[in-house]
């Protein structure tokens, strides 16, 4: 048995914040943000809207795209769960009318969707689930320091999802090779330091600043490029393919310059690099399904294309996979 991608959907909250709107508050200009990141705008939730709300919208669209009204498992990759406990996925499953199925969250930060895809594929391949809804959803606007110009412009809110079903390895959409990795030595490079047991057990009241997202940009840049490129090479080798076979490269949309540098390391021509970061910024676990949806919708990604996916995020954690794109369109 092999897991096959059978449906895809995404959802962005309607409110858009442009660079110009952030620029005044942060003391930077639009061009400063664009030249360093490739980002022009991001979508953000309205007050009271949270991760599960976005996950339900994306999940419903992926189910519709797959032509299914039920799956055996719902997996939500997120680092901004609605609550520390319980997991976000059971509530999402219930709201999708899937109450009773296995549902759990997975935290691999910006590599969460790739890890979710691997885990969902393994459930199908192992015979534990006949079909899996894998959702990547994040509301980073809830963890950003609005006054920190090194992080506030970088992220947007959003959700994306795919449906995996059981099928054959020779089918388009078959997920037959993954490479996943991590390096806890780099745990401090991307972190929300407060709010967890480490801080709470210390008996010291939480430092409000510790509730915000922090990132060491320089180290992350180099590490992201190196690990995404190495992981991509590994997965291509496992599939008996080379970078020359890659029709489209859909990487985690963290920074346009990281994506170009990864493509440069792999010798994948820039016109094969899918980017929507200019419109949505970094949506963490949602970024790859959001980019896939955009690429299908605008005709950049076509059935039969050999598409390479790679991601990198806090943990540190990274991963890659590749598949032949199936005749699947967002609902």
């Amino acid at each position: 048995m092999t897991a096959v991608l059978a449906g895809i959907g995404a959802w962005l909250p309607p409110t858009i914040v442009t660079n110009a709107e952030l620029a005044d508050r942060l003391g930077v200009d639009d061009q400063w943000i664009q030249s360093r990141t490739g980002i022009r705008q991001r979508h953000v939730v309205d007050p009271g809207v949270s991760t599960a709300d976005l996950a339900v919208e994306a999940g419903a669209r992926a189910l519709k795209s797959a032509g299914l009204d039920a799956v055996d498992t719902v997996l939500v990759a997120t680092t901004t769960p609605d609550h520390p406990m319980p997991a976000t996925a059971p509530g999402v499953a219930s709201r999708l009318g899937l109450g009773g199925v296995a549902a759990y969250d997975l935290n691999a930060v910006c590599a969460g969707f790739l890890y979710g895809l691997a885990t969902g594929a393994a459930l199908v391949t192992g015979g534990i689930a006949g079909s899996v809804l894998v959702i990547g959803a994040d509301v980073y606007s809830s963890i950003l320091d609005p006054a920190d110009r090194t992080t506030a412009p970088l992220f947007g809110d959003g959700a994306g999802a795919v449906v995996l079903r059981s099928g054959a390895a020779a089918e388009p959409g078959a997920l037959t090779a993954f490479d996943l990795g991590s390096d806890g030595e780099g745990a401090d490079l991307i972190t929300v330091p407060g709010g967890g047991a480490r801080q709470r057990s210390g008996g010291v009241p939480a430092d409000p600043a510790g509730m915000y997202f922090t990132m060491q940009g320089r180290q992350v840049f180099t590490s992201a490029v190196t690990h995404m490129a190495d992981s991509s090479r590994t997965v291509l080798t496992r599939l008996g393919r080379t970078a020359a076979d890659v029709d489209r490269f859909v990487g985690h949309q963290a920074n346009a310059r990281i994506l170009r540098a990864v493509a440069g390391q792999l010798d994948v021509p820039e016109d094969r690099v899918v980017m929507n970061i200019d419109r949505v910024a970094n949506t963490s676990a949602a970024s790859i399904p959001l980019a896939l949806c955009d690429a299908v919708t605008d005709g950049t990604l076509l059935p039969g294309h050999f598409v390479l996916l790679a991601a990198f995020g806090g943990g540190l954690a990274w991963g890659a996979t590749a598949l032949t794109w199936p005749a699947v369109t967002p609902a």
């Binding site: 360093r36 840049f221 180099t222 490029v225 190196t226 310059r257 540098a261 440069g264 390391q265």
Partner: peptide, 15 residues
């Protein structure tokens, strides 16, 4: 060249 460009140069040199 901004600070990111120097990292891009280092990665390209490495390759």
């Amino acid at each position: 060249l901004d600070s990111l460009a120097l990292l891009e140069v280092a990665l390209a040199v490495q390759k």
